[in-house]
Design a protein around this nucleic acid. Sequence first.
DNA 1: TATTGTTATACTCTATAACTATA
DNA 2: TATAGTTATAGAGTATAACAATA
Lengths: 158, 158
Amino acid sequence: MSVPPDTAASEVKQEGVAIPEQLADRIGFLVAKSHAVCHAMANEALSPLDLHIKEYAVLNVLHGMGAMSQQALGETLGVDRTTMVAVMDALERKRLVERSRNPVDRRAYALAITDDGVDVLRRARRLLTAAERKLLAPLSSAEADQLRDLLRRLILGR
Amino acid sequence: MSVPPDTAASEVKQEGVAIPEQLADRIGFLVAKSHAVCHAMANEALSPLDLHIKEYAVLNVLHGMGAMSQQALGETLGVDRTTMVAVMDALERKRLVERSRNPVDRRAYALAITDDGVDVLRRARRLLTAAERKLLAPLSSAEADQLRDLLRRLILGR
DNA sequence: TATTGTTATACTCTATAACTATA
DNA sequence: TATAGTTATAGAGTATAACAATA
């Protein structure tokens, strides 16, 4: 039987990420690897703020869309309402978000970002923008724009 | 306090995937959404073969690179060796791979894809190619190639 | 002493079911 | 009767630590 081949011969490595050449042409594999890289990058960038990328997304949506319920927030971010509970608990504990009742429907919250939350959001944006710039360094500005455009169209279906 | 706004106004929806516009320009968010779509698509496409996308990756690498150890396979795919055990157990149970000892180093296996494995791999490739074509339908052929190129360069760092 | 494969264990992430308070 | 939020619980998925066999 054959011996394990030298993997270096059939991979391209850099920054700890390897792509088996048999999978290098599959969009799914490339997207999965990209996701791993982006996710790690984002959480590392936000670590000085003691903020997770999912919490950043919450602050972002709350700041941009205004007060809303946990249910609506979960739907917007694509996570279950039961999953939102712990996320909001953490953000409330850090005083970045406030839960008050929606007076029109007292079952639901009117979630709102606090002044501290807005401040952290601003800092997070700067950190993420810098990290994204580093991540996108291998691409020109036009190519980065095109990548965003292609991914958007891939997701939306046309 | 304000009432939850109409979410439809500030999202773009299709095929169940929504993109909050505050995050629509972040590469990380677009990549994460793309990954979710691709992963679901791939596993759905492979379901007739009772094969998971991770098992497909194993068959692909084993077929393309020849016999290798579980350790090396795990490194190639970016998963821990302890995680490989269950994956290989499942593939061996389905008779798609064989574990024989590497005579040069009897601690390690010489993992090999079986004839059945090659057959399943071929069918899986056809299913995935068809699914990928559907997924990439909103893009022209040249754009799909460019997307692959941009993602590869993003991962590799230049 | 180090490494391969294995197991037990734990940790993360997420969803389902059932409860409460409101509607 | 239905919905928002909560809790308990369970299921993936993955990683760490420790062990046996081999180097």
